[in-house]
Design a protein around this nucleic acid. Sequence first.
DNA 1: GCAACTTTGGCAACCGATTGCCAGGTTGCG
DNA 2: CGCAACCTGGCAATCGGTTGCCAAAGTTGC
Lengths: 336, 336
Amino acid sequence: MQQPTIYDVARLAGVAPSTVSRTFGRPDRVGAATRERVQAAADELGYVPNPHARALQTGRHKTIAMVISDIANPHFFELIRGAEQRAKAAENTLVIVNAEESPTIERDQVRGLSRSVDGFILAASRLPDQELRDLSAQHHVVLVDRELDSIPSVVMDTAAGCRQILEHLESLGHREFTYCAGPPGSWMGAARWAALRTGAEEHGLRARRVGPYTPTVANGGVAADGALRSGTTALVAHNDLLAIGIMRRLADRGVRVPEDISVIGFDDIFAAELVQPPLTTLGGPDAHAGRLAVEMLLELLKGPRGGSSRDDAEPLHHQRLPTSLVLRDSSGPAKG
Amino acid sequence: MQQPTIYDVARLAGVAPSTVSRTFGRPDRVGAATRERVQAAADELGYVPNPHARALQTGRHKTIAMVISDIANPHFFELIRGAEQRAKAAENTLVIVNAEESPTIERDQVRGLSRSVDGFILAASRLPDQELRDLSAQHHVVLVDRELDSIPSVVMDTAAGCRQILEHLESLGHREFTYCAGPPGSWMGAARWAALRTGAEEHGLRARRVGPYTPTVANGGVAADGALRSGTTALVAHNDLLAIGIMRRLADRGVRVPEDISVIGFDDIFAAELVQPPLTTLGGPDAHAGRLAVEMLLELLKGPRGGSSRDDAEPLHHQRLPTSLVLRDSSGPAKG
DNA sequence: GCAACTTTGGCAACCGATTGCCAGGTTGCG
DNA sequence: CGCAACCTGGCAATCGGTTGCCAAAGTTGC
């Protein structure tokens, strides 16, 4: 039960505790022979350094927290995967916590972890701007799927992505579309709508919006009904989950996809190609985003606050990753 | 940047650090007036206790780790959700780590976290028996989707569940079926096969097995081909992911489901009802399992080792949760 | 052969809490 | 009025490491 400490190791190896500490922390500060003796003793005892004791002294935990707005959303899988890989490569542990789409929970989780981790990656944070600013003033923070001031962030290139969608719709002969909005707190949702609406004109499209809806399959039903009333030929949903829910409802109501109406989602979650018809959706390099976010955070941790040279630091700040529209069967020529 | 400590609070409130500590830890040991002064000072400074310093002294972290064999498997969503809820109710934080289906990674994750958490919940652990025994001798461990010796565990009632599947197949007139096995390290997989095979006879069924396969959609292709060679009328897959992959391959090869062949999965992941045809699958109370696992672990943490009265502790040890077969369209009458 | 320099390893302070023990001040009761 | 029993709150040790500083030992150069 009781784990061995440096003192146990020191006694067994016949050296001082400080020497044991150095053997691990600064091996070059210790003679080769001694180092081996200590190593042997440590192995024999199965010594594992106590991260808390270390953190207490050094202030570094080699741990970073990733707060996910909704862990049940498959969109975050690859993000988590990528982040974990990168973290492990840097010998940091990544802990994942779930915010359940609730700002309150998110806040609590962060508070609770604030002394236990070196920094936070907030994925699709639902926290208000000001709170994020405060947070990033006190802790090391990297945002994913959200951009704010000069807080480092990595997002999918919404503008370019939405342009792809608009082009796609235009080329299929659509004259308008309806956007089924996500939750009010979603920065990504707002960005998507903004990009779609402002870009619509150039593509000769009229943009409408319904919602907001909580983006789950279950909520697709309401969203579909809401959108149908507008008599549109194309639906763009806040994300794939919502899009899939919409398609189910459409099928139930006898509306054919894509013959009667086209449906397009965001994220390219793994279920997107499994549903019937397979969903056209805007995907992005999620795993890469995860890796990048960790990398930026690690970078942030090196230079205490505000990079060395401002010129250097800037380009890292806001990363926009290229997206790609995955064409499947849920989008087709406009009816009529 | 620098977080306030009890010393800061103590100075501001004009008391000794120990009094500040007591204000939070043992409020009744401190006078009402003093308590309020301290509280006010703490609030003003935004004091948050440093969990490491506390852990160093008390040995308790109020944190429990949940190791998931593959975080990309939707099966674990609800488990995580339930566990998180229960943990939060007990004011513990739950950290989730991913083992990526690899025993090595799992081992590393556990080692790395061993001094930072009070206990582990291992979900679908891929570690060999002996290692789990060692682990549970040194730490507080609760198993999910696996049973071993007297290590506390919560699993779905495989035997009963498989009986349901067998009955279902029998009633549809099937005379045999093929089981597409999961990874070799999966205890659940072994348990499922064992239950299916031993129960087959009573239901007048002949059981065959192909595999093992890594249970992903992508691997369903090989599994389908392997199973088809056996010329079976029904396929039972290790889990829904594999089942979905199998159905895709079958569709590609022009085999109709369920007319030509029935497909049944395990877990009832959210995609199961989205695919075409919707998948018949054996589901269980995942969220409940998560809650229960945390509860058992908390219980374990109270009594250091070996409960108070053995009679009390025993019934808690192995929890088997009832499963239910969700009938959808992927299973139907045997061909011919 | 001796001064100057470099290794090597020990001492002790420190990180931020918790907690056993003790002292001073109140209160209660005879 | 005196003494015991409480109630409060402070002192100081402790948890398990890290690290600045120093001394002893070993090298090197002249």
